[in-house]
Structure formats: structure tokens, C-alpha cells
Computed example of a mutant assay.
Amino acid sequence: MSYSVNCSILLTELPLLERPAAAKAAGFDAVEFWWPFAASVPGDAELTRFERAITDAGVQLSGLNFNAGDMPAGDRGLVSWQGRSSEFRDNVDVVAGIGGRLGCTSFNALYGNRQDGISPEAQDELASQNLAAAAAAVARIGGTVLLEPVSGAPRYPLLTADDALRVISRVQEETGAENIKLLADFYHLSVNGDDVAAVIERHAKEFGHIQIADSPGRGAPGTGGLPLGDWIARSRQLGYEGYISLEYKEPLATAFDWRA
């Protein structure tokens, strides 16, 4: 099984740049990150330190988020955020640069919360333009933009797989962008009440990426009641060939005990 460790939610007892090596020591060959910098356009020295932490650890960067704003404060993406479009476009170039240097081709674009005083239609129009721009930028390195339903964010409008797929279809129809795919996070979909098994049956071959955590609690596999093993196996049977990202909360000491 090709697992990838999300080093933004796991191994957090360690400094961020030590986590790729810790993932390697735990037996994994791939890692992914939410946006790991404070700014959309970090300095060259910051970029170099981040990239060296991955290459020195001998792991593959399998996924990277575009800047999603201040996540601890509740932000969930810049894609539809009126007033920060130029910042998102600048970030796209940085993300594509990292991907090109490290061989990463999967890039998660969180859609953004609904804004007071801005119509959903206006936000959706901006999102379509920004997603198309991101898709064009990463297409040059063979990359794919991922769009993700999210739970636990009351103002985030994409809750189900169909919500995300409608956006993807709109961008494809309006701009011709073909390299935008669904990020199927089984935890988020389940918590939001989606029929995960049905989503897998209809769309597994089209998944751009899979992330897992158990529910309730967003813990490691086996700490809740989700049939994660069955869902992963069925996705594989139906044609999904990518990584399975471990995006759950678990202390460092027991983070990967479930593999035994």
C-alpha cells in the first residue's frame, strides 16, 4: 500500500522540518503538507530549507496545499476570497516551483469560506477563474489541482463530493481545464453525511487523491467506526492508483501502531 504521511497534522511534536525524516524512520517513503509557510510568497531561504528537509530525508513530496490563509483562525482557502486573488495567483507560481523541483504533482486548493457582503455567485465566479489559473500553472509540470469537501467549517460551501464535482465541471466547461480532480477525504465526506461507498462506486477511477482518518475523532484507523480498509480496497479495485494520505490526529508515540 502506498501511504503518504501528512506532516502538517501528524508528527507535530517535532519541528516541521524534522517531520519528513521522522516519517522515513517510521517506514514511509512519501509525505505531504498543508501550506507550510506564513506567507504566500516565502523567501528563498525558507523555500530551500523546506525542500532540503524533504530531499535529505529521502522521501517523495506527494502533495502540497496552496496557501489557505490562517487555518487555526478558521480560514479555509483563498480560491474564492474576494480581495486576495492576486495573492493566490502569486502563491500558485511558488507552489508550481516547489512541485517542479521536488517532483510533486498533486496540489490541494481549498475553496474558501463564504464572505459577508459578497454574493456566492461572485465568489464562485472568482473561484472558477482562480482554479483555471492554478490548473494552467501546474499543468506545465504535469500537475493536478485537487478540490476538497471539508467538514467542521460552517461557512465552507463544499460539503459533499457532488458539491466539489459541480465546481470542477463548471471550470472544465468554462475554461477547458482538465487537470482538476476530486480529493476524496473519507473522513470529511463521512462526517458531512455523504454516502462514501456510493461516491467510490461512481467516481473512484476519477479521484485525484485519497485522504483518511477515522470517525468520530479524526483519529488513526481503527479508533473509530469507518470501514476505511474496505473503502480503500474498493477504490483500488475500481481504478484508483494514487497514494493513500494519512491525515489524522494521533500522538507521535502511537501514530502508526495501527499498521501492526
Rank of each mutant, 00 (worst) to 15 (best):
G239S: 08
G208T: 10
S128E: 10
S85Y: 03
P251S: 13
H188V: 09
G103N: 08
A164G: 15
V167T: 11
L146E: 01
E51R: 14
T223G: 03
N113Y: 03
R155M: 06
S85L: 06
G74Y: 10
G225I: 11
L78Y: 14
Q60V: 10
V79E: 07
V199I: 14
S106K: 15
N192I: 05
A133E: 11
V92T: 14
L47N: 12
Q115E: 04
V94K: 10
L47P: 15
E51Y: 03
T223V: 03
P120M: 02
L10N: 09
Y248P: 03
Q123T: 06
G99Y: 06
A22Y: 07
V138I: 11
D70M: 12
L165D: 06
C7V: 13
D93E: 14
Y3K: 09
F28Q: 05
L165W: 01
I54T: 01
F37Q: 14
R101H: 04
K181I: 02
E247D: 13
E87M: 12
A57W: 06
D116T: 11
E148Q: 10
A204W: 13
L252K: 13
D75L: 10
V150F: 00
R140M: 12
R84P: 11
G193T: 01
S86E: 15
W35T: 04
P20C: 10
P157I: 06
D124P: 00
S86P: 00
A253W: 01
Q60S: 10
D194N: 09
P154W: 08
A198D: 13
N108D: 00
L189G: 10
L10C: 01
Q172D: 11
R76V: 01
P221G: 05
M1Y: 08
N113G: 07
F207E: 12
K24W: 02
S235I: 07
R218S: 02
E32C: 06
S62M: 05
L10W: 02
L252A: 12
R140G: 12
E241A: 14
D93M: 09
L78D: 05
V167Q: 12
V95Q: 07
L14K: 14
G103L: 09
L158H: 04
K205S: 14
G176S: 11
I9C: 13
R234H: 08
Y240T: 01
G242M: 03
R89K: 07
L182S: 08
G217I: 08
G100P: 05
V138D: 07
V191A: 11
F207C: 11
A26Y: 00
F207I: 12
L61S: 03
G143H: 04
P154K: 13
A38C: 08
